[in-house]
Simulated scan of single mutants.
Amino acid sequence: MIASRRFLPSINSLTALEAVDRLGSATAAAQDLSLTHSAVSRQLKVLEDQLGVTLFVREGKGLKLTLAGETYAQSVREVLKQLAQASLKVKATGSRSSLNLAVLPTFGMYWLTPRLRAFCQANPGIQINQATRVLPFDFQQDPFDAALHFGTRNWPGVHYLPLAPERVMAVCAPDFTSKLPMAPEHLLEYPLLHLESRPGAWENWFSQQGLTASRLRGMLFDQFTNMTEAAAAGFGAALLPDFLAQAEIARGRVVAACDETSDADGTYYLVWPKTGDQSDALSKLIDWLKNDGKIAP
């Protein structure tokens, strides 16, 4: 239930408070909001009278927020941000149904998004929104209908739809060495790039080539995209998912460091919560992925 309107301050008063807190003065806030200094001061006074709490004190010709004012301004900023996001979502979606997906950036960009074009053409009444999440989260706290997940079935409270196993390739810059592709054992002599979310990836790859590798040192990255840039710049060899490696090879930015492609220890899944009602849009996406979506575009 929404509180009585007399407890709900006007947007003008809230934006004035947020701007003063963010910019440090009523003068700067007035410039930011295209208002006069007196108009900003008046909005703050209206807000203060409505709440019955001192939100600011005068310091010379300026205003300084009290502790209560600063605390309230932080909450107001989050509310205004959520309101702006909700307004943008409604504006962008229009009368269509929306489906909010949390995606792994690289898999979402190179595997899922190209396939979604066919789904959206077949379902013009559904709009799919995407936001990046790289770790499991609580569906009760984050407003997502489903998410992409890599690894094992270790996300509690969700359904799983396997999408694709991960196969990896060792790649490097075209001028990384004069002998390319090289034998896997020779790769041990060169710098290797590592991804934080794939500990032991190189050790597993060398093991599949019948080699034992330890104390593998090299630059560390938190995203495939950054690691790919480093590989293309010649900083070392990188293990990339085959869908990303093939795209970068086609662009001429990297080449295969070795001919071997190996299975990684993990699977890509679509996951969605077991609790709550499943929307019609999500049901259509799940059915489409089961029947048509895994086919390469």
Rank of each mutant, 00 (worst) to 15 (best):
A245R: 06
P191V: 11
R5E: 04
A3D: 03
R96Y: 07
C120M: 11
T36W: 03
K179S: 15
A256M: 04
L112G: 05
N123F: 10
D142R: 15
A256L: 14
K45A: 14
F139N: 04
L193W: 05
S95A: 10
M227E: 11
M219L: 10
A173P: 07
K294R: 14
Q50D: 01
Q209P: 05
D142A: 13
Q208Y: 10
D277M: 07
I126S: 01
W202C: 01
D32W: 07
M169R: 01
F144D: 04
A102P: 06
L63H: 11
L80V: 12
L8N: 01
F107L: 09
T71I: 15
A245W: 06
D287H: 13
A183P: 11
L135I: 13
V168Y: 01
W111S: 14
A173I: 15
S38A: 13
C258Y: 01
G200C: 05
N204K: 09
H159Q: 14
P124H: 05
Q74F: 08
R5Q: 08
D287Q: 14
F243A: 00
A250Q: 14
R22F: 08
R217N: 05
H186S: 07
V57T: 11
L63Q: 14
N12L: 09
P9H: 08
T261F: 02
W288H: 02
S207L: 07
D142P: 00
W111N: 09
G94I: 08
L65K: 11
M219T: 04
A233K: 15
A30G: 09
A230K: 00
H37F: 12
Q50A: 06
A86H: 07
G293N: 06
Q74T: 12
V46L: 14
I286N: 06
Y268R: 01
P184H: 05
A247K: 10
T267K: 03
I126D: 01
E59T: 15
W205C: 11
G293K: 03
A230I: 02
T132H: 00
F107W: 11
D259Q: 12
F176Q: 01
G60I: 08
T113F: 03
C258N: 07
A39C: 12
P162M: 02
D145P: 04
A86P: 07
F139H: 03
L104A: 03
L55M: 12
Y110C: 03
R117L: 14
L101R: 07
H186W: 09
L135R: 09
V90M: 06
N154V: 12
L220V: 10
A264E: 00
S178V: 14
F243Y: 06
E189L: 12
T152R: 09
Q246P: 01
C258S: 13
L289W: 12
L161F: 05
G252M: 13
T261I: 15
F150E: 00
G234M: 08
Y110F: 15
T267F: 04
A233L: 12
A245N: 11
A183I: 09
G125I: 08
Q246Y: 09
P191M: 10
F221D: 06
P9E: 04
E48S: 12
A131F: 11
E78Y: 09
A147R: 07
G24H: 07
